[in-house]
Every structure is written in structure tokens, then in C-alpha cells.
Design a protein around this nucleic acid. Structure first.
Lengths: 155, 155
DNA sequence: CTACAAATTCAAGTCGACTTGAGGTCAATA
DNA sequence: TATTGACCTCAAGTCGACTTGAATTTGTAG
């Protein structure tokens, strides 16, 4: 039971088979061989895929993820390059915290217009600090809105 | 100097004029009127745009941002709905922290393959906790890589 | 040995958020 | 008054990450 075919990998990770093939094509993962036509994957691929998912959540492109954790587990990026990525993430995290506070504030603030609320103004300033020229993320929206429990088969 | 035309807004926010028009079309912002053909914007639009940028950084679609902070500053979303968004962000933030730690680890860990490193394993477990069926973000990549100082003109 | 479910390849399609280009309009300057 | 240049609209194009569909190839169950 050491090797899995693509459907098993899909089941374990929740990632669509077509996406897994896509990742292989792009060089983010590798299959250990074939049985007939069918790809066989070693257990390591599960970790690789977890990393990919993680990286995507971080807003990195497949290309960048590949550079950071290559399919062999060895990064194609220099140490400073990686730390730079980490620093970006730190900034990203701070922005998200600001956004979270903002949303909570909007939910609870009774002021009719937020432009009148000093706290809101303060939050905007914070977020504005180093948000110019920043990495921006957006999801393709898996067709079912945000909170819907879905993996695979978007669009 | 109370009203700005689109190029001024663009200059202040770093957002491309075409994007600003796009946001108006989608109902995320409103212009206060026209001078001839040209749109005129009030000062509030700067905050609105800051919010939009923030929301995008949080991985929300324009549609979702509109629901959270409508163009009039009043959310079209219920209080629980907003708190749900905030909770999502909290999860998102934790995932990003895990990713950041992972990257720092990859940068510094001497182990040839990460699958052999116990710390790596531990980090993977953490990230795997509630990452299945999660919101996933990805940027369209503004054509100049990640760290390039750019706003506007992606694709 | 035949059927069949499951995997394969390859090309083409989809989605959101813009951008780009062509052709037109107008307020302000020379 | 005639330019000019910034802005306008509308249609079409782009980008990344997949998905979908059609045609094909298996290993395996009956």
C-alpha cells in the first residue's frame, strides 16, 4: 500500500485529479512511475500537496511555490530570497489583522457612516501605512461562495 | 479643491484609472457627479478605495467587498455575516503564520529533504489542521514578480 | 476473452479583475 | 475660435489555475 494512484491522492488531499496532473505538468510534484498509463505516487506527495495548498493560501503562484519548495523538497530560492518571502508574509498578516479589525468594527459600530467614526479612520490609517504597492490576492471563487466547504471542481 | 477627477484619485491611491472606473461600474464606489464627461469624486472615495484594497488583500472578491462595506459605507451584510468573515480571516491569518514559519524553516534547515525533518513534519500537521476546504487565494501576478513595487496595471 | 471502470492525453473553455484599443466628447488653453 | 489632451464608452483581450470533453488505453473483474 506504499503507492497510490491519482484518485487515492485526490481522496487524501481533497485536490481534484485534474489539478494534481496540472501540478505535475508544471513541475511542482513528481510521480514515482506508472502502472500502465496510470501514475503512481509515493507518500511524500501528500506533504508536497499540503505545501502547495499552503502556498496558495499565502497568495503565491505555482511558479513561486515551485521556487520555494521545489518538487524534490529543495528550494530553488536563496536563503535571503526565502526570508524575503517570509517578510512579505508578515506584512500580509498585519494587513489581514487590520482588515479583520475593520470588519469587526463595521459589524459593531453604530455610526451611520464610517467616515464619521474616528476608530474607523484610525484603522484606515493603519492599513494605509505600507499597503501601497503591495501584493494583492484574489481567489477565482470556486463558484460556491466563500464559506462553502469545497475543494476541487471550481468553476 | 474638494472634488477630484479620476487622475487625481489615481495619483492619491496608486490605483489605475481603469480600475477605478471598473469599481464604479461594479458598484463599489460612486462618483459625486460629472464635469462634462469627466467623473468627479469626493474625498470619501479615498477611504472607500483603501477599504477595497484592504479587502482584496484579504482575498475577498469585489462582490464580497461590496457586501461588506457597500459604496455608501453601510454593509449589506448582517452582523453575524460580518463576524463570520472576520473568523475566516482569523483562520487565514493562522495559516499564513504557519506558512511563514515553514518558509523560514526551509530557509534555515540543513536537512536535505524536508520529509526527514521532524520540525517540518510538525509544521505540516499544524497547517493541515483546518486547511481542507478552505478559501484559497492567488494573485494574477502583476507581470513583474512579487516584490516589484507595483499597484495597478496587473495582467 | 470481453467488458468496463478508471485513468490517460490534448485542446479548448471558464472565471474574475482588470487592461487595452479604437473612436468619440468636451473644458480649458493658446 | 481652434486645438489639445484628459477623459469618456464599449468591445475585446489577457492572465493564472484549473476544468471539461472527446477520443483513447489499460488492468482487472466476470
Amino acid at each position: 500500500m506504499k503507492f497510490m494512484d491519482i484518485s487515492e491522492v485526490s481522496k487524501h488531499t481533497g485536490i481534484a485529479a485534474s489539478a494534481i496532473r496540472h501540478y505535475e505538468e508544471k513541475g511542482l510534484i513528481t510521480s514515482v512511475g506508472r502502472r500502465g498509463l496510470k501514475r503512481l505516487f509515493g507518500p511524500d506527495v501528500l506533504d508536497q500537496l499540503a505545501l502547495i495548498t499552503l502556498g496558495k493560501t499565502g497568495g503565491f503562484s505555482l511558479e513561486e511555490i515551485k521556487a520555494m519548495f521545489g518538487p524534490d523538497g529543495r528550494p530553488a530560492l536563496s536563503r535571503p530570497g526565502l526570508h524575503q518571502r517570509a517578510d512579505e508574509l508578515d506584512r500580509q498578516i498585519h494587513t489581514l489583522e487590520a482588515l479583520r479589525d475593520m470588519i469587526r468594527h463595521v459589524a459593531d459600530c453604530p455610526a451611520s457612516s464610517h467616515t464619521e467614526c474616528p476608530k474607523f479612520q484610525q484603522l484606515i490609517r493603519i492599513s494605509g501605512r505600507r499597503n501601497r504597492g503591495e501584493r494583492v490576492l484574489w481567489p477565482p471563487k470556486p463558484a460556491g461562495s466563500i464559506s462553502g466547504r469545497r475543494r476541487s471542481s471550481p468553476s
